[in-house]
Design a protein around this nucleic acid. Structure first.
Length: 305
DNA sequence: AAAAGCCCCTGGACGC
DNA sequence: TGCGTCCAGGGGCTTT
């Protein structure tokens, strides 16, 4: 489910719950998710105060007073549910739901968990945070803060697309000489970290670029950015920013409380729209679905060249 | 080395 | 109603 905007939104929702709280107890309901959970996972978290949360690419990093960082990746189907303390306000609950985090009533019966509720955090502020992940492509681990950047999950990650480095020149330099398609180029987490299948499709539509075009065409013979790179950089930033904003203001009119993609899914121009008309004024083409590297790509064959 | 393919896993949508 | 097939927002690992 989650690409950068969804992870950002979830992280923003979890931050006020976790920050400054002490993790009283961790209920680990299986020994592995995608990977085995680390040795003494629960014991290393229990009694520890949370300092702050940060998103990096599609990871949520929970910085702990113990010096370790709880690193969480939601894979395809990872979700958080919050059980607020009984006295919490309706305003707070609605705020959480706007951050794509669903609310549930406290479980009276401890054994009433879903089979996909894998990890449960009990906090000293009265909140309970439940991690649910049917496909178990998500994972959690504990890494010492001073080893975070060199950990294999992070050491090869590319730039954060919303932190200023995503310029036409950056795209040209990174793409120069690359024979892969633009689709594969943008999905490569070693170059830009956080884009996934949806936002790559949407960004390429906004930039008017075919997903099949060679990445190398973002640069000219001297490695300078072409007009394509000039269009692509702001297209990526724009679609991500709008999706994050939609994640924060979406659910008021949208009753699906599990959040998945917030409201932004109603704004998709190409993703999941195969056979539907292109939204560009005066374009009579139909959105097409193709396979690239085994994954669906959606694009307008007329607007995207 | 770069690029492409395979696979992990469950559930929902669809056709018969 | 039930069963089989296909598909899914990720990414690590293996093969070419």
């Amino acid at each position: 489910m989650p690409e950068l905007p969804e992870v950002e939104t979830v992280c923003q929702g979890l931050a006020p719950i976790f920050e400054r709280a002490v993790i009283k107890r961790v209920e680990q309901r299986r020994h592995d998710l995608r990977f085995p959970l680390p040795e003494r996972f629960a014991a290393r978290l229990e009694g520890v105060r949370v300092d702050h949360l940060k998103r990096r690419a599609k990871y949520i990093q929970v910085f702990l007073a113990s010096g370790e960082v709880l690193v969480m990746h939601l894979g395809m189907s990872g979700k958080f549910t919050i059980q607020p303390p009984a006295n919490s306000s309706a305003l707070l609950k609605r705020g959480l739901e706007e951050k794509s985090i669903s609310i549930s009533e406290p479980h009276i019966d401890r054994h009433n968990w879903s089979p996909h509720d894998h990890v449960i955090f009990y906090l000293d502020n009265g909140f309970t945070v439940v991690y649910n992940d049917p496909r178990r492509f998500g994972y959690m681990t504990l890494i010492h803060a001073n080893a975070l950047k060199t950990h294999k999950f992070f050491q090869n990650l590319g730039i954060e697309p919303l932190e200023g480095g995503l310029t036409p020149q950056f795209l040209a330099s990174a793409a120069k000489g690359k024979s892969v398609s633009l689709k594969a180029f943008l999905l490569d987490q070693r170059i830009i970290a956080g884009l996934g299948n949806i936002y790559v499709c949407e960004a390429l539509f906004r930039a008017g670029l075919s997903p099949r075009r060679q990445a190398a065409s973002l640069a000219d013979a001297r490695g300078r950015p072409t007009a394509r790179a000039q269009n692509l950089a702001p297209a990526i930033r724009g679609v991500l920013k709008e999706a994050i904003e939609a994640g924060g203001s979406s659910l008021r009119d949208y009753q699906k409380a599990d959040g998945s993609l917030g409201y932004f899914q109603h704004c998709f121009k190409v993703y999941n729209r195969a056979g539907a008309p292109c939204t560009t004024p005066h374009c009579n083409a139909t959105i097409r679905r193709i396979l690239q590297n085994g994954r669906s790509t959606f694009y307008c064959p007329s607007c995207q060249r």
